[in-house]
Amino acid sequence: MAVMTYRDALNMALREEMRRDGRVFLIGEEIGLYDGAYKVTQGLLKEFGPQRVVDTPIAESGFTGVGIGAAMVGLRPVVEMMTFNFALLALDQIVNSAAKMCYMSGGQFNVPIVIRGPGGPAAQLAAQHSQSMETYFYHVPGLKVVRPTTPMDAKGLLKAAIRDDNPVIFIESETLYHVKGEVPEDPEFLIPLGKALVRREGTDVTVIAYMGMMYRAMEAAEDLEKEGISVELVDPRTLRPMDTETIINSVRKTHRCVVVEAGAGFAGMGSEIGAFVTEQAFDDLDAPVERVTGANAPMPYARNLEKLKTPSKDRIVAAIRRVCNVNGS
């Protein structure tokens, strides 16, 4: 194990996979000469050269399509979206081409591509640069969608995504790039896609969260521990396909469920988790599933408004108290 930042863990994953497999190449804006807008690809141009670290003009649909075409005939592209907000310019390529190629060709052409970059709330970047983008992708059959919370997950999941034979949407976070954590140096360290993780064991309530919201939920859990409420934290890690089994098993144990998500709540991740928990574990629930979500508003710029947009620790604590039927002190 080494302690490193989330950013360096991603860099390590890319470097290891490029060393391991000559078919893996990187393509995107400012990833080479500039060393990456967020420095995730730092030093890779130097090691692998311009053939495998391909700087593109600003043409998201174009270079995503390039990745898809290259993947159809056997390469393993890793496409960087400078931020995932820009992926909407490539949404048709991702949804109509990458996700459906295998199906509409009757299994003849799969698309082993990773589309990665930061998404989710960032610091005062306002409406167009600070939004949770996973909702646009996890609805689509044929895509896999990953949101890695820790440096260890960032490495293990990115490596698994690159080795996967299908299109993987891999959304990181500007606000987590500097977070440090333990990361295995083993180049064969992989975390399988589609497996959730119980990050904290507890007995009274299951809280499901990922990315920045997991860190906030962890703080809430620690506060509540002092009041005698035992919170189990489950991180889905892969949103599609989702490990419903781990979540259901946890809910069956705790009988209560709170979902925390940064994005606007309407038809969000919490809606889906709330639905399948209710369908599959209704008799085990002692309280309705609670959702703590981002406000149903675009992201504002002003610091105070921005703070109101995203779920706070206090809101998470309040929701947990409600499902546990405990009034605040």
């Binding site: 399509g65 075409g69 390469l75």
Partner: peptide, 8 residues
Amino acid sequence: PIAVGVGF
């Protein structure tokens, strides 16, 4: 663009 990717 997919054709360009095949050319790539």
